[in-house]
Design a protein around this nucleic acid. Structure first.
Length: 311
DNA sequence: CGACTTTGACCGGCGC
DNA sequence: GCGCCGGTCAAAGTCG
């Protein structure tokens, strides 16, 4: 199973489906007013600017520069809101994100290769999280923290954020280093769920990766917590500078999942991770289908994902 | 040899 | 109280 993640030189082409992409719908972070689920909001390019308080990037989230409130704002919902379009909320049934999407994974259809979901953890039956949103405690503390927890003492849930990504690989490269610490079979699904932890010391961010059984081409990645350290990929250099500017200029507003998108931009010799994808997959056609924000914004987004280039 | 993955066991929450 | 299930642990295995 691991081989599918680490070595298969497959051709990953999540963009060929996007015939009717709505600007900004693919990745709500780019939306002025997040059109999380293709609800007809079509932000203008002008609306997509980093200075917009409601704007956030995936990088922002991963870097922990935003707290959950900010995140919630960005998605125009509150942490406790039951209005959250929350496929991941299937916990109410004991299901999981992948299984009973309100609009069903199939309805994710091809207009968007990625959906983002904040988890309304209110109904979830997750055991309270280790650090309660903070990443101050050490690993050792976190190890048995759960077990030694007093009964009835409910810790606040960590912010969680789920992405549904059309991808053939389960564990998408995002610039951070992850260690797999568990895998479980998912009820009613032939696909297992994998559990990853950030390998950085004192960072308790976790990530769950599972594949939708209704649409096996969709991977649900759920981030939990916020990184308290810079992205390892980011500190290694700015690969964004190596990208041809024509690439940026050819892009228009909006975007598919930047994680996917940006890893796709890595040239083969940049493959520092097992899941790196291939630069040659980017064709002019794809570039046109990418809906990117303006250059400045892209600069803001790109580093975490593509700064893998050695100096 | 260190980092990482695999996998069975274990724990605790929740619904019945 | 019991059983189911999600999440985690940790030993063993694998890889580079």
């Amino acid at each position: 199973m691991s081989d599918e993640n680490r070595s298969t030189p497959y051709h990953h082409d999540p963009f060929c489906h996007d015939q009717n992409r709505v600007s900004g719908a693919g990745f709500p972070f780019f939306c002025e007013k997040p059109a999380i689920f293709n609800q007809g909001v079509t932000p203008s390019p002008q609306g997509l600017h980093a200075t917009d308080p409601s704007y956030m990037t995936f990088t922002d989230y991963l870097h922990g520069s935003l707290d959950y409130n900010t995140l919630s704002k960005a998605f125009d919902m509150s942490c406790s809101s039951s209005e959250v379009i929350s496929p991941v909320d299937n916990d109410s049934g004991k299901g999981t994100a992948s299984h009973e999407h309100p609009s069903t994974p199939n309805s994710l259809d091809t207009s968007s290769s990625t959906e983002a979901i904040t988890e309304d953890s209110g109904k979830s039956k997750h055991k309270p999280d280790l650090q309660g949103g903070g990443c101050e405690d050490g690993d050792e503390n976190s190890k048995k923290a759960n077990k030694s927890k007093k009964k009835g003492e409910k810790r606040p849930k960590e912010p969680r954020f789920a992405f549904m990504t059309k991808s053939e690989i389960d564990h998408l490269e995002d610039g951070y280093r992850w260690r797999k610490y568990g895998q479980k079979a998912v009820k009613n699904s032939p696909y297992p769920r994998s559990y990853y932890r950030c390998t950085t010391q004192k960072c308790t961010v976790k990530k769950r990766v599972e594949r939708s059984f209704q649409d096996p081409s969709i991977v649900i990645t759920t981030y939990e917590g916020q990184h308290n350290h810079p992205c390892p990929a980011t500190i290694r250099g700015n690969a964004a500078a190596m990208l041809p500017t024509s690439f940026f200029s050819s892009a228009t507003v909006g975007s598919s999942f930047p994680q996917e998108f940006l890893t796709q931009m890595l040239p083969p010799n940049n493959q520092s991770g097992p899941n790196s994808m291939y630069y040659h997959n980017i064709t002019p056609h794809h570039q046109q289908q990418f809906q990117l924000p303006d250059y400045g914004l892209l600069q803001d987004i790109v580093p975490s994902f593509i700064r893998k280039q050695e100096p």
